[in-house]
Amino acid sequence: MIRHHLSDKLLMAYAAGTLPEAFSLVVATHISICDECRARLAAFDSVGGAVLDQRVAPVAMSSDALSLTMAKIKSRAEPSPATPLPARDSVLPGPLRNYVGGGLDAVRWRSIGGGVRQAILPTSRNASARLLYIPAGTAVPDHGHRGLELTLVLQGAFVDETDRFARGDIEIADEALEHTPIAEAGMDCICLAATDAPLRFRALLPRLVQPFFRI
């Protein structure tokens, strides 16, 4: 049962098509496993439909527009086949499998210290997305934010000062939130995290600094 959902703001920006790619990836991944937000997104798409249908003054097309369009239709009789999605995976929903190029087995993890591993996903640079692997019982210390951070749980659960977050739950954290997420005992926690703040930790950072990484 998913208890933490996307905000109206994020859904509207996603419906409008203006989110940075990394955030869109989190939204699309959450919606893949949350019918409630899938329906909410459909409602926000409907707002776009209403804007298109009622809030713009139509601008006349050229006189040959319809015949040109029919020619385009004719020249591309078959819709290009959709790229087949990598096979199903119990942890990674479809949009993530596209970015990873497969299921959980295909993730190229890199250790960032303290048993925590990450895999940065290829998105545009104005925000970054990564998968995080946090061993059961491990804390992520000194965890503040710059900018907006979305964390979507894919496996296991984490708890912080605000609440408990399990598979499908999304935590929306801004600069105001200082928290210490701890992966619950029992199962290692896998999350998708996206932020529009600059990446704070890199491979060349000394090990000493790594426990204080920000996500």
């Binding site: 098509g17 869109s24 990836l25």
Partner: peptide, 10 residues
């Protein structure tokens, strides 16, 4: 040429 917009799983 805005950011790519991944779609939810069908």
């Amino acid at each position: 040429r805005r950011d790519r917009r991944p779609e939810p799983e069908d």
